[in-house]
């Protein structure tokens, strides 16, 4: 009964309207997909074809030579490895530290707790770009220029991640932690054997977001990495047209291959990622 009332009111418009609404959504999906499709098809074309008329989305002839050039003439494989290593290490450490801080805020009482939490929120409002110049000078002092420490360490404990972890860890039942204490578990033991396993989905979300951010980051790596064998994918791809005299097709091939793993992970975990991201915004 209720259902009928609802349907009649919201969907009053009926079948024609529904068809219209469906096609609007479909057009939105298509417009979003076309640049991706164009990227993929462009990577299989010859240079001349991209600069000739008529403009088409599909190649007239499929060619693999852009990929040959990409692997043969550039450091693409090295960049790929560098990026996996850097993003992986930064993610592992960043997630662990964020979970530790989140646990402290969610499950313990201590002096200055509110002040520390205010600090977490305050860092959310400070734009990272203000720090660029002094951070760079600091990296020079540390001797970290052209090393991955410069990419991995600064900003590794992200305030947003602490915030997210705190929210999830709050849901871990106190009784469970107390029972473990009575059994003689240490606080670190409780963190590793009770809290972490129970918030695994949140760890996954934070890990993916950290990984994607590091994978895509451009401005900071551009400032601290100058040797082209040390490059990460983003800088490598951005500068590919310069020293290597590479054609746009090869750049599209690199773009496609560097986006692929991120897209696959996202497709597998989209529900959790979107929920994790949007949760904070709904509650305000």
């Amino acid at each position: 009964m209720h259902l009928k009332v609802k349907r009649a009111n919201i969907m009053g418009p009926g079948r024609v309207n529904l068809m219209f609404m469906n096609s609007v959504v479909l057009i939105g999906v298509l417009l979003t997909a076309i640049p991706f499709i164009y990227m993929i098809t462009a990577s299989f074309r010859q240079q001349g074809e991209l600069y000739s008329l008529p403009v088409t989305i599909m190649p007239r002839e499929w060619h693999g030579h852009n990929y040959v050039k990409l692997f043969g003439d550039t450091h693409f494989v090295i960049w790929y490895g560098n990026t996996i290593f850097t993003a992986g290490l930064r993610t592992a450490l960043g997630v662990y530290f964020a979970a530790l801080a989140g646990a402290a805020f969610a499950k313990y009482e201590f002096r200055f707790k509110r002040f520390f939490f205010f600090l977490v929120l305050a860092t959310l409002t400070l734009p990272f770009q203000v720090l660029l110049v002094p951070l760079f000078l600091m990296m020079v002092d540390f001797g970290w220029v052209d090393t991955y420490w410069a990419v991995i360490v600064p900003g590794i404990v992200a305030a947003f991640n602490i915030f997210l972890m705190r929210q999830y860890i709050e849901a871990v039942p106190d009784e469970l932690m107390d029972a473990a204490r009575i059994d003689g578990a240490s606080e670190f033991g409780i963190f590793h054997r009770i809290i972490l396993p129970l918030v695994r989905p949140a760890l996954g979300v934070v890990a993916i977001l950290t990984f994607v951010n590091t994978w895509n980051d451009f401005l900071w790596p551009l400032i601290v990495l100058h040797d082209d064998t040390k490059y990460l994918l983003s800088i490598g791809i951005a500068t590919m047209d310069g020293p290597y005299d590479v054609e746009i097709g090869a750049i599209m091939a690199a773009s496609f291959l560097s986006t692929l793993p991120i897209l696959i992970v996202f497709i597998l975990m989209q529900r959790q990622i979107i929920a994790g991201l949007t949760q904070g915004a709904i509650r305000g």
Binding site: N216, M252, T259
Partner: peptide, 9 residues
């Protein structure tokens, strides 16, 4: 998707 990839596309 990386801003660089978006830029190139």
């Amino acid at each position: 998707t990386s801003a660089i990839v978006v830029g190139w596309i």
